[in-house]
């Protein structure tokens, strides 16, 4: 953490859902700064706005109010096309339910982001191979998602998230559908990615998963209630 470079900065971020009769406030003025190289965990009870926040940070959803800066650039009101461009160049996603495309093999799933980036075929092959090896699923390359265990699917999903070498990885309950052994395995992989320099923002219910983060943000009713530095993690890193 030598130089503090801001990746994400939000000010008074708001999100309201309006249906026919009810207006629900999901986020009510969130101020959050995430620096390059950080590992941030967002925690809180169900319905507190964790996923909404993650989706907005991941440019999958747009805020109703406030400011959202990504790499210093205001993008709160940018177009879908612009956001799509920023996403594919800078962001990687990991989901609770893996979200691999059933009709594509492991290899094809992992290569997908590179296809949208217009990376050459040879380069794609090289980078997919590297990502699969890093995640230990190279031997499953031509299987379809349904033929894999949950742990393997999530490793494939992480491989897909990192293959384009993103600046920021957003993980939404990445261990939620996994047993504890596979869960630890996945957290170790995320941690390792973070150690190599990738910024990670993760939503989780699990205190033990949160232990992997540098900083834990607690959300309640759409607002940040506490922000704790994970001293143990810092201590570990200082060693």
């Amino acid at each position: 953490m030598n130089k503090e470079e801001l990746i994400i900065e939000t000010r008074q971020l708001e999100k309201k859902y309006v249906t026919d009769t009810v207006e629900t406030t999901a986020l009510a003025g969130v101020d959050l700064r995430i620096n390059r190289g950080e590992f941030v965990a967002i925690m809180g009870p169900s319905g507190c706005g964790k996923s909404t926040l993650l989706n907005i940070l991941g440019l999958l959803d747009s805020p109703s109010g406030g400011s959202l800066k990504f790499l210093g650039q205001e993008i709160g009101n940018s177009s879908e096309r612009q956001r799509a461009k920023l996403r594919k160049q800078n962001l990687g996603f990991v989901f609770q339910s893996f979200n691999l495309i059933d009709e594509l093999t492991v290899e094809e799933n992992i290569g997908l982001p590179l296809a949208y980036l217009g990376v050459s075929k040879a380069e794609t092959e090289r980078r997919v191979q590297e990502a699969m090896e890093r995640m230990g699923i190279a031997h499953r390359r031509s299987h379809f998602p349904q033929q894999l265990s949950g742990g393997q699917q999530q490793r494939a999903a992480i491989a897909r998230a990192v293959v384009s070498d993103p600046k920021l990885i957003l993980a939404d309950e990445p261990t939620g559908n996994l047993d504890s052994v596979h869960g630890r395995e996945v957290m170790a992989l995320l941690s390792e990615l973070n150690e190599r320099g990738t910024t990670v923002v993760m939503v989780t219910h699990s205190p033990s998963d949160a232990e992997y983060a540098h900083r834990i943000v607690n959300l309640f009713d759409g607002q940040i209630v506490t922000e704790n530095i994970n001293s143990r993690k810092h201590a570990a890193e200082l060693l």
Binding site: G58, L60, E80, R81, A84, K85, R87, K88, Q89, F93, N99, L100, I101, D102, E103, L112, P113, Y116, L117, R160, S164
Partner: peptide
């Protein structure tokens, strides 16, 4: 799901 995913990894409309 496929549509969502493709968008996540950078597909535009």
């Amino acid at each position: 799901k496929e549509v969502g995913l493709r968008k996540v990894v950078g597909a535009d409309r």
